[in-house]
């Protein structure tokens, strides 16, 4: 009897487990392993244990890049929450069929190729591009504004590409929020603002936290956006890691940076699991 029951479990969960171990767990341990090795003169990995890569991270250059990346990721996250929450709230209150249309609109960026989208941004925002033409023709500016390869455009690009990740989890938790709880709050004397603070916000917090994780982590590691909109001149953790594994060929340093990202991610996930108990209570 017992054996019979085990077979389906193995058949169902087995393939994914093997897949994850082969292609996620082992490579991740390999990265951690490499981060403690040293770099050979030809850019190869020398299996000679060393803390050098981690000590390099303390160097002010890297420290600045890391803190700047954290700042941009934090800005992106805050902007996505600030823009995304009201929007998510709005669509969650629409009739189901309308909400589905809005969700589709939000999803469209997922279906377009990132490189193509970013390239079109470069064309739009370049010195002789439509945006600058418009600004000059309408007399808002006298000379062309430099948009491309600036931190601002990188931030704008980040927010644009991350917004759906913020809207979707927040939408789902707002949508799940039982309308009668809001009515009960109003019934007991709370105005709209108080109800929002005391009921809506705490009960949709799991969605907000998911949004934070889904936006902050990729923002921290993303390299396509800074590479293209920042012209590779604006340095973030993401493109530095990419360069260490690519052009510069300092794998241990790249690995150490990756480990730092993993650590930050791990911390966030840890915090998230501490908050999930709220989510479980949402169903009443």
């Amino acid at each position: 009897m017992k054996k019979k029951n085990r077979l389906p479990a193995l058949a169902m969960a087995g393939p994914v487990s093997v897949w994850m171990i082969l292609f996620v767990t082992i490579p991740m341990f390999f990265i951690i392993f490499i981060s403690f090795m040293s770099r050979g003169i030809f850019g190869d990995v020398v299996y000679d244990p060393s803390m050098e890569s981690y000590l390099t991270l303390l160097d002010s250059t890297y420290f600045n890049v890391i803190s700047k990346s954290l700042k941009v990721a934090a800005f992106t996250t805050l902007a996505c929450l600030g823009l995304g929450y009201p929007f998510a709230y709005y669509i969650a209150k629409r009739p189901k069929d309308q909400a589905a249309k809005y969700i589709t609109l939000i999803m469209i960026p997922f279906w377009t190729n990132t490189l193509m989208r970013l390239n079109s941004w470069l064309l739009l925002f370049q010195t002789s591009g439509p945006v600058n033409n418009f600004l000059q023709n309408s007399g808002i500016t006298d000379a062309p504004v430099r948009f491309v390869y600036t931190d601002e455009l990188v931030a704008l690009g980040m927010v644009t590409s991350m917004l759906p990740f913020a809207v979707l989890p927040m939408y789902s938790s707002i949508e799940k929020l039982n309308k009668s709880l809001l009515e009960a709050s109003a019934d007991l004397g709370a105005d709209a603002k108080t109800t929002f603070q005391k009921i809506t916000l705490p009960l949709t917090f799991p969605g907000i936290f998911s949004a934070i994780i889904l936006v902050f982590i990729p923002s921290l590691g993303v390299y396509t956006v800074p590479d293209m909109l920042g012209g590779g001149k604006v340095l973030y953790i993401g493109n530095i890691i990419k360069n260490q594994f690519g052009m510069i060929r300092n794998w241990p340093l790249g690995a150490a940076l990756s480990c730092l990202l993993i650590a930050i991610t791990g911390l966030l996930i840890f915090l998230y699991t501490r908050f999930t108990s709220i989510e479980e209570m949402e169903v009443v």
């Binding site: 019934d187 007991l188 105005d191 009921i199 169903v283 009443v284």
Partner: peptide, 20 residues
Amino acid sequence: KEPYQRDVNTVFQNYALFPH
């Protein structure tokens, strides 16, 4: 008058207790 301004209170069908 908004619901919060009325001197009546409601017991809801599915209790609507604040889960948090």
